[in-house]
Structures are given as structure tokens and as C-alpha cells.
Design a protein around this nucleic acid. Structure first.
Length: 199
DNA sequence: GGTCTGATTATCT
DNA sequence: GATAATCAGACCG
């Protein structure tokens, strides 16, 4: 060993992504998020799976207009839209594009930062199960109602640019019954941390 | 390996 | 009353 102190956690790739990054349609932003690093209070990892949603298609919560639940989707880009799914889980989105209700749902991370905290919140050890699904990811990071409408480029969140060009695949979205034909799910090819195999 | 079901709440019909 | 951007555990072959 060299004698220099060993880092407790891996170095963080890339630069912090600010509000301007989100000023684009969700369908454009979604594939570019693959490989970026997302954390909440130091817990998280590389984004490996996302889905785009837009007010013009019926699978989106914004399709039938604004409600108390989806208000953040109609707000400024670069903020979080957090909602409760099936009455039990939390799901986390990045709001996109001013003047249009659209967002990118975070579906899976490759966990790398704050692993002990994430394992504690999830109550299990297997890294492949920590953040491989929108509800699991939110439980691991501690996302909840308090984060709805909060800016992504400010604490406790951090979103860092990808330092590589991941191999991204597109396919149909998961768990919806409308607009099933749109290939608006984006995954890092071959990642073992996806919520399910691309279809 | 797969398929089914319960949990629990906001929203819509 | 029904559905939903889900998950974990039970059960079957």
C-alpha cells in the first residue's frame, strides 16, 4: 500500500447536473440518464433503468390533468415527482421540460454508494435486490412524500453526469395497460440490476 | 422455473 | 366499486 488513506467510498464520476439539463422532452432525457449517478444523502448509484411519461399518452398520470397527487409533474423541470404506488410503495420521477407535464421514472440503480444504509432500509443484503425496481429503489434511498416537488440539483439529492457511454436498449414500459406499444423504457444492456429482463 | 395473491391508498367511474 | 408507473411470499410443477 502507498500509505495514503483509502477512500471509504468510490470516487464520483462526472459533474453535477443542474436545472438546464432537465429542460428537454422526457423521451430525449430518459436515455441520457442511463449511467448517471443519483444519490439521496449519499446513498444510491448509477442509473440503469428509467421510463419516460408524457401528458399526451394515457399511461401517464398527467394524461387526465392536474390533481393534488401529480401537481409536481405540472411544475418546474428538474424537480422530483414522488407518488405512492399501489397504496404501499413510493416511486420517484424527474420532472422535464417547462410548459409540459412530463417526467422520467427511476426504475433501477446499480447500488454503489451508502450500501450499509440501503441494506438497512431494505432489510436484505443482496445488491441485486437493493434498487432493482421503482419501489425498492425508493425504499433503499429513503425517498418519501417529503421529497415530492424538491429540486434534484440541491441537497439531499445529487445527480452526476455519466463519465462513459453506456449501451442503452429501449423497450415497452412495465406495469401499464395503456399505450403499451411505446418503447419508452430504457435500460443499460446486460446490467444485472434491472427490475426485469427487457422485453 | 413459473404463477397467484394480499397489502393499502389516491384517483377515477 | 375498480384500477393502479409494485413487491414479497406462497404455492405449483
Amino acid at each position: 500500500m502507498t500509505g495514503s488513506p483509502r477512500p471509504i467510498e468510490p470516487p464520483r464520476p462526472g459533474a453535477r447536473l443542474g436545472a438546464a439539463f432537465f429542460e428537454r422532452p422526457a423521451i430525449e432525457l430518459a436515455p441520457e440518464l442511463i449511467g448517471c449517478t443519483f444519490t439521496l444523502a449519499g446513498a444510491g448509484g448509477r442509473i440503469v433503468e428509467v421510463e419516460a411519461y408524457d401528458e399526451a399518452e394515457p399511461a401517464s398520470h398527467a394524461y387526465r390533468g392536474r390533481t393534488r397527487r401529480n401537481a409536481a409533474m405540472f411544475g418546474p423541470p428538474g424537480h422530483a415527482y414522488v407518488y405512492r404506488s399501489y397504496g404501499i410503495h413510493w416511486c420517484m420521477n424527474f420532472v422535464c421540460e417547462s410548459g409540459r407535464a412530463s417526467a422520467v421514472l427511476l426504475r433501477a440503480l446499480e447500488p454503489s454508494l451508502g450500501l450499509p444504509a440501503m441494506r438497512g432500509r431494505r432489510g436484505l443484503d443482496d445488491a441485486r435486490l437493493l434498487c432493482s425496481g421503482p419501489g425498492r429503489l425508493c425504499q433503499a434511498l429513503g425517498v418519501g412524500a417529503a421529497h415530492d416537488g424538491k429540486p434534484i440539483d440541491a441537497a439531499p439529492f445529487e445527480l452526476l453526469e455519466s463519465d462513459e457511454r453506456p449501451d442503452v436498449t429501449a423497450g415497452p414500459r412495465v406495469g401499464i395497460s395503456k399505450a403499451v406499444e411505446l418503447p419508452w423504457r430504457f435500460c443499460e444492456a446486460g446490467s444485472p440490476y434491472l427490475s426485469r429482463h427487457p422485453g
